[in-house]
């Protein structure tokens, strides 16, 4: 049975692929595709696609399972009597922390929103100067930015920890926000995008009309780089939303959802329903942001290459 389904699917995919070829392209292009090759690559895609998505689907389904279905041996993939009880039990699980779940959710949303907005703004201002002005040292700076793409907050954990502790930023929201704003991915992507999408002629025309750099940035450049802004929004939000600071936040009322998640998931199989429920809650916002920004992201990433 499974084989038949797989074959049907393959057939359909193959049809689509060859369909696109014959409509869109010349005869000579179709010549470069073999049937056997098509078959293998559709199989490969289906397998990998299942590997990517099945764990997530399983997580969503498990979060709706009542307790007795969680304890069934062997575990079932599907859920027969869906219930919201895992979600409703979440606030109660946290009662020993004396901080309501809503506070963690607020912290997460607040920090992610503030960081994302500042990240887009700061990165695009810097990228504009680096790509379209003639300030001194911009080449060196961009080279540094490009090499700094290598270093994540994880590799810089120790010296950043020292800086936080000397500036007394431990146990403040700054720990979440500031290091991320220094991440160079935003400036890098934005600068590459501006080089390709903003013609100098437009800026020169604005100059002749008397516009300064502030004016050019705000009324000409920013509206033109909206796709790239959406991209930075996605990456910024995704990273900050799932960040779990290491040793810099002790005050429970300043912690975010990933901290709750690691507490609940430490509870073992009896709490797996609730743990899955938290995971699902964590999954939703990044997915929403991606769905909103998706077409812009795929458009603007085109300029991301590193030229050496």
């Amino acid at each position: 049975m499974a084989v038949i389904i797989a074959e049907k699917k393959t057939g359909r995919f193959l049809h689509r692929i060859s369909g696109r070829r014959s409509r869109g392209l010349s005869q000579s292009r179709r010549y470069t595709r073999s049937k056997v090759g098509n078959f293998f690559y559709v199989c490969f895609l289906i397998l990998l696609g299942l590997f990517s998505v099945v764990p997530l689907v399983y997580c969503v389904l498990t979060s709706f399972k009542p307790l007795d279905e969680l304890m069934i041996f062997p575990p079932r993939f599907s859920v027969s009597r869906p219930t919201m009880q895992n979600y409703l039990a979440l606030p109660g699980l946290l009662s020993n922390l004396r901080i309501p779940l809503s506070r963690y959710i607020f912290n997460s949303l607040f920090i992610s929103a503030v960081t994302t907005i500042l990240y887009v703004l700061i990165s695009s201002m810097a990228a504009f100067v680096l790509s379209k002005s003639h300030v001194r040292g911009k080449k060196v700076m961009f080279l540094a930015v490009q090499y700094a793409l290598l270093f994540t907050p994880f590799t810089l954990a120790i010296p950043q920890y020292l800086i936080f502790s000397y500036t007394r930023m431990i146990d403040t929201y700054f720990v979440y926000i500031l290091p991320y704003l220094a991440s160079t991915m935003g400036v890098f992507l934005m600068k590459q995008y501006m080089e390709g999408s903003i013609p100098d002629a437009i800026l020169e025309a604005a100059r002749i009309d008397g516009a300064g750099y502030f004016r050019m940035f705000w009324s000409i450049v920013l509206p033109m780089v909206k796709p790239c802004c959406m991209t930075l929004m996605l990456f910024g939000f995704r990273d900050v939303w799932s960040a779990l600071p290491n040793g810099t936040i002790f005050n429970e009322s300043l912690k975010t959802l990933p901290a709750v998640m690691s507490q609940i998931t430490a509870g073992g199989i009896a709490r797996s329903g609730s743990a899955m429920a938290v995971t699902v809650i964590m999954m939703i916002p990044p997915i929403l942001v991606y769905l909103v920004s998706q077409s812009n992201v795929l458009e603007s990433m085109n300029s991301a290459g590193i030229k050496e």
């Binding site: 540094a144 700094a148 950043q160 020292l162």
Partner: peptide, 29 residues
């Protein structure tokens, strides 16, 4: 002068953060 000033002002927030949270940590290590 105005142009240069505006450019440096726009570059400043990122440049400062970059120095404090990336360059300084590497030198400090």
């Amino acid at each position: 002068f105005r142009d240069n000033l505006q450019c440096y002002i726009m570059l400043a927030p990122f440049a400062l953060l970059f120095l404090i949270f990336l360059v300084l940590p590497i030198i400090a290590s």
